[in-house]
Design a protein around this nucleic acid. Structure first.
Length: 802
DNA sequence: GAGTTTGAAACT
DNA sequence: CAGTTTCAAACTC
């Protein structure tokens, strides 16, 4: 197995920007928890529990490998009544506490004896391995037993799990705290190690969200250095299990060993997960151990049948995982798929350096990575967080994102979006093809539901909806991509149930789905069951590889995962000129290079994306119905282009809402540019889409001129960060109105257009409205660098197409 | 479904 | 940066 970039991956998992994370905020805000101390931690080892599990799946996870972060270590008062769950699961605590204490003691003892010191030191040397194991296993264990909808096989499953998990959680919390103390006591032995213990005692596990709780809860519970924790954990496991055959311990060790070289297992969570499992088992009266050993079918008095079932399932999952080791290629994803898609696919991880945004978090149903926790402290249940929804989300510069299945359903979102604290809906359309496709789906599935449409386009005015509708009618969109009735689509429908939106699937044979050749990979989604790829590594189990690969690709081209089609189409709300803008007013970011297809086939990315060719295109004989790039605008002076281009507010279409690039994305749900997340509120899902609605039906798009600007900067050698800064700081109003009106596509476009010449916008030819034409011209002038915008015309694909 | 065409991505 | 190769989707039969 190639694990070339393991190092990177580790770095990627590094805990970063903890203070920025919603979880951190949340924890900090918990009144019941006393911040006992503040510790500066340098975490060389990235076990990041503070970030959503999705992080693991995200190719881009963090950029900051090491950071000193003041961390609060809340002390969990185990005896505190608050800790009990609202539904009276307190008993579980009493049940668990003794074990927990025991475990904690063990851990401490171990630490005190400096038995872990060596391990810790080693961890410093090569932390990633352990850390990753821990992380991955933890997350996995959690995932597996936590129940995504798919997981719930028994009615009471959830509730039972809740209890068990809570126990685990508690134990972990204590454990983490204890370890932390131990570590501190032996600080000398643990150089550079930090343990973070964040405990939120007030969290409540809702019966429905326990999954999230764990996943996310784990995040909340503690952030600790894997190097320390993993070791300690294992030790603890051993000790606890003591003479009992050490099954768990051996298992964990085995996993750890196996994990080496196994990307899937390379998460720090692995060991922890194992430990967690062990803990859970212990807590449950060793029932788990028996279960875990598979052979056991006996019930212990303490363990309710449901619990058994749960444990059994966990056990099975672990076994399955174990089996996977060393046989990735053979791994039958399908089998796992049922379990994983519940969470993996739903997690669109946006990687925002340091802060992780769960793109699909809004999908409450999926819950997988959304942070949803309740706490009683304020007598309020706080559903927080959905990373993308909270103001606390910080977007960091990182374009990457891995979104699986945004598609997952717009429907779901529709139902859940209103749950966002912000009150704003996450899904904003008309922009991304994916969104559109979702819309189509909605339309087809729930006819006449204008409501649905509105939900999809929250905050968007009717015009946007209209645009969307029009756009949907465009050949590329409605005719092909979105035609669910076509044989292909039917197949998709059947395979995916039509609701998850993952209609597309790749068929990669050689790329292992780790190159941009792969649509899935390029779109930032994992390959899923329907994919017919061979030797696919673009799966959650190989997330570290995926992540590393993405990083590598991004290092080459930071915008590689940005949407290819940049849409600027905000409705012309504020400015009268953009009346004719349609969702199609977008351009391919780089432009196509078609020679033979005449840009009339899907070979052409522009056409495929439903956009017209632009000046950026180098196509020959362009006949793109969405807009050709033929003309050159005479009036545009090339000299001026470069300068003004940067000043242009990409988003400017309306100038109303999109000061920043990020905002420009509003309609697109498009990829996250660095600035994107930063500047804009988490309301919008941070995923990036590809213009096609890749399998996930998520389509892409949108981007902003800034994006293009970024691209240019990139080429020009400017630091990405610089660019990001620029984007962030760029005031929306700086740009003249007129400039703002300009569709981003133009700007956005390519850096490499052969002709940065004046290109007459197709629109002219196509017959866009006069006003539009005028607007375009102005735009072109002001933005010389991106001369062409044929797109202008192309902006109206629907019109032209229709 | 196999083979061909096409153009993007990757490589040199 | 240009040319070439590789790749997988799109297309054709």
């Amino acid at each position: 197995m190639d694990t070339p970039q393991r190092g990177q991956q580790h770095a990627g998992t590094a805990l970063s920007r903890v203070e920025d994370s919603p979880v951190f905020s949340y924890i900090s805000s918990l009144s019941p928890i006393k911040p006992v101390k503040s510790v500066h931690i340098t975490h060389a080892l990235p076990l990041n529990f503070s970030s959503p599990p999705s992080v693991f799946a995200s190719p881009h996870v963090n950029t900051q490998k090491e950071r000193k972060i003041p961390i609060r270590y809340p002390v969990l008062d185990s005896s505190a009544p608050d800790f009990s769950s609202e539904d009276g699961d307190d008993k579980s605590l009493s049940y668990v506490m003794p074990n927990l204490l025991k475990l904690s003691e063990c851990a401490i003892d171990e630490k005190a004896n400096c038995r872990t010191k060596c391990l810790l030191n080693e961890a410093n040397v090569d932390p990633p391995e352990e850390c990753q194991k821990l992380t991955s296993h933890l997350s996995r264990s959690l995932e597996y037993d936590c129940g995504s909808p798919n997981h719930n096989t028994a009615p009471c499953y959830g509730s039972q799990n809740k209890v068990d998990l809570k126990r685990v959680r508690v134990s972990l919390v204590d454990f983490a705290c204890d370890v932390q103390e131990a570590v501190e006591s032996s600080a000398n032995d643990i150089e550079g190690e930090d343990i973070r213990c964040q405990v939120h005692s007030k969290e409540e596990v809702s019966s429905c969200d326990w999954e999230n709780l764990i996943t996310d809860g784990s995040v909340n519970l503690f952030v600790f250095d894997p190097s320390t924790e993993s070791e300690a954990c294992e030790e603890r496991c051993q000790k606890v299990r003591g003479q009992d055959a050490n099954y768990s311990t051996s298992y964990s060790l085995r996993i750890s060993e196996d994990s080496i070289g196994d990307p899937q297992r390379s998460h720090p969570a692995g060991a922890l997960a194992t430990c967690l499992k062990s803990t859970a088992l212990d807590v449950s009266g060793d029932y788990g151990q028996q279960v875990f050993s598979q052979n056991n079918s006996e019930h212990t008095p303490q363990v309710p049948p449901t619990c058994q079932q749960n444990n059994q399932e966990i056990s099975d999952q672990f076994e399955k995982m174990d089996d996977e080791v060393g046989d990735h290629d053979l791994f039958d994803y399908e089998t796992d798929y049922q379990h994983q898609r519940g969470f993996r696919r739903r997690c669109l991880v946006f990687e925002v350096a340091g802060s992780h945004v769960v793109g699909d978090s809004k999908d409450s149903s999926s819950a997988s990575f959304s942070i949803s926790f309740k706490h009683i402290s304020g007598d309020k249940q706080q559903t927080s967080s959905k990373p993308s929804s909270g103001p606390r989300q910080h977007a960091l510069p990182s374009i990457g994102l891995h979104l699986n299945s945004l598609a997952t359903s717009s429907k779901v979102r529709i139902a859940t979006e209103d749950n966002l604290p912000s009150g704003r809906k996450l899904l904003s359309l008309p922009c991304s093809t994916g969104a559109i496709s979702s819309l189509v789906t909605l339309q087809k599935t729930s006819r006449g539901s204008s409501v649905a449409e509105e939900d999809l386009c929250p905050g968007n005015d009717p015009q946007e909806l209209t645009e969307m509708r029009n756009y949907l009618q465009s050949p590329a969109i409605s005719g092909e991509e979105l035609d669910l009735n076509s044989p292909k689509k039917k197949k998709c429908k059947l395979e995916n149930g039509g609701e998850h939106g993952s209609c597309r699937r790749c068929n990669c044979k050689k790329s292992k789905c780790l190159k941009l050749y792969c649509e899935c990979f390029a779109a930032g989604v994992y390959c899923v069951g329907p994919c017919a790829c061979e030797g696919c590594l673009n799966k959650p189990i190989h997330e570290d590889i995926v992540l590393a690969t993405r990083k590598q690709i991004e290092s080459r081209n930071p915008l590689a995962f940005a949407p290819k089609v940049i849409r600027a189409s905000a409705p012309a709300t504020g400015i009268g000129e953009d009346i004719n803008k349609t969702p199609a007013s977008a351009r391919h970011k780089r432009g196509c290079n078609c020679k033979k297809s005449g840009c009339l086939k899907k070979y052409c990315e522009c056409y495929q994306g439903g956009v017209g060719c632009s000046a950026s295109c180098r196509c020959e004989g362009c006949k793109n119905t969405f807009g050709r790039r033929e003309g050159v605008l005479p009036m545009v002076s090339e000299e001026n282009e470069p300068k003004e281009e940067q000043h242009v507010d990409p988003c400017g279409d309306d100038g109303v809402e999109f000061p920043h690039e990020a905002d420009c994305l509003h309609d697109n749900d498009s990829p996250v540019t660095p600035s994107f997340q930063i500047s804009r509120p988490p309301l919008r899902p941070p995923f990036s889409f590809s213009e096609k609605p890749p399998r996930s039906s998520v389509a892409s798009i949108g981007s902003s001129p800034l994006l293009s600007a970024c691209h240019k900067l990139q080429k020009s050698g400017l630091a990405k960060s610089k660019l990001e800064k620029h984007l962030q700081t760029a005031p929306e109003d700086e740009t003249p109105k007129i400039l703002r009106e300009m569709p981003s596509p133009l700007n956005a476009v390519k850096t490499a257009s052969p002709s940065r010449k004046r290109v007459s916008p197709p629109q002219h030819e196509i017959g866009s409205s006069p006003s539009q034409k005028g607007g375009r011209r102005l735009i072109l002038r002001s933005i010389p660098s991106f001369p062409a915008l044929t797109g202008v015309s192309s902006n109206d694909p629907p019109e032209t197409a229709l």
